[in-house]
Every structure is written in C-alpha cells, then in structure tokens.
Simulated assay, not measured.
Amino acid sequence: MAERRPLTREELSAELHALSRRYWDKHPFHVRLHAGGCGPREIRSWVANRWYYQRHLSQKNAAIVANCPLPEIRRRWLARISYQDGRTAAEGGLHDWIVLGEAVGLSREELLDERHVLRGTRFAVDSYVAFCRTRPWLEGAAAALTELFSPQHMTARVQAWREHYDWIAPAGMAYFDSRIPVVEQDSSWTLDVVLTHSVTREQQEASIAALAFKCDVLGAILDAVDYASSCTQLGCVRFNCAQLNCPQPNGAR
C-alpha cells in the first residue's frame, strides 16, 4: 500500500484549528460559568482545581525543553517558565493565580495545600506532565496549542465575571489581563514551530493527536469540577463543600 503523503502546512493548520470543537469552552460547566450560573462555591472549586494545573505548567514546559535538541526552540520555550514562575515569588503567573484565589474567597493556605483539588484533576494534570516528559518534544509543543483557542475564551471570561460576579475582587483579574496578549503571541509562534517541524505524515498525525489529548485533559478537569458541583445530590460525602465556604453543613443548600 502506498505511503500517505504528508499534509501541506495549510492542511495541517486546518486540522489543528478544527480541534477547537473539543476545547473546554464548550463544556457545560464553562457555559454555565460564563452565563452567570455558578455560585461562589463552584467558582472557588474551579479556581482551586485550576491552581493544580497552573502549578504544573513550568514542570511540563521544562520537560519539553529537556527533550528538545534545538537550542533556538529551547531558548524561546524557556520564557514560558520565567513567565509562569516569575523572577520572584511576588510576580508571575503563579503569583497572579494566588491573587485570583484570594479574590474569590480562598485563603492562600488552602490554595497552596491543595485541599480542594479533586482526584480527577490530579489524574488529568499528572498525565499531561507525564505525556510531555515521555513523548517527543514536538508532541509536547503541539499539545500546548490549546493556546490557539484560549485568548478569545479568556476575554469572554473576564467580561462575564465582571458582569455576573461583582463580588469577585477586581485584583483577581490580573492573571487574565496579563495572560491574554502573551498567549496570543505564543500561539502564533508555537503553531509555526509545529507546522515547520511536523514533516512526515506520522509526525503530523502525532501532533494532531497530542492536541486532541490536551483538549481531553482540560475537559477532564472540568468533568471533575462539574461532578463535584452536583455533590448535594450525592450526599456531599467526598467533596468537603464546607471547606469551600458552603453556607450549610455538608454542602446542603
């Protein structure tokens, strides 16, 4: 059987962009979140679980750098670690996410000790880090292309939160306000890297599969948070709603 031809750059780009249908902005929880349908407990749960993802971004980026033999790629990718970790503990993406946690009513202590992180979130994020450590660097880079879909989604989130959740302290929006222009630049560069270095059909299909996997990682995080939000119907045995300032014992409303 004849070997299938590689996709053109335009065809591969179209295949990658088409995966926007699997991005987590379509998830019922995010739809409800942006429509103003979430209560404080749900928003705190989302922020606390996203913290676990945020905390591991530098580790997955370091794994991509470690696997990459190209110094020009490593130099540019290292900037992601510097951005997320900051030059000091008082700056960077992690610092801004802690500020967001405090803005929605989570103490720094409960965010950092990860008491609210759900097992589904842990499995999803840990699998993403393991993927970037064990797969070729190009697949790790392709997995990061969810950033193609995120700027518009983050912009909509900021607008929705300011409209529907005026109880959230304005300082909490700093992460999104600073992140949007950065991710717009990163996504264009990363897409070019993936299109340039995915030469064979096998590499191209691996890049597409990597981005699909990352979409599933993000979706799994929301699955866990969404399931936990329904725990009032499950007796609230597992999810410790009181720790997220649920107004009544065992999360009853």
Rank of each mutant, 00 (worst) to 15 (best):
R5I: 10
L16D: 04
L19V: 01
R21W: 06
Y23T: 00
K26T: 10
K26Y: 08
H34E: 03
R41G: 05
Q54K: 07
S58T: 15
N61P: 00
N61K: 13
A62Q: 13
I73T: 01
R74I: 04
R74T: 15
R75V: 12
A79I: 04
Y83N: 09
D85R: 14
W97R: 14
I98S: 12
G105P: 04
R108D: 01
R108S: 11
L112M: 15
D113K: 10
R115N: 04
F123A: 13
A124E: 05
V125R: 08
Y128A: 08
C132K: 00
T134S: 09
R135F: 08
L138N: 05
G140V: 03
E147S: 00
L148A: 01
P151L: 11
M154I: 01
Q159P: 00
A160T: 01
W161C: 00
D166C: 14
I168H: 03
I168K: 05
Y175L: 14
S178I: 04
V183A: 06
V183D: 14
E184P: 01
D186G: 00
L195C: 08
L195M: 08
I208F: 03
A209D: 08
L218W: 00
L222D: 12
L222F: 08
D223E: 06
A224H: 02
S230D: 15
S230N: 09
C231I: 07
T232Y: 09
L234G: 11
C246F: 10
P247M: 06
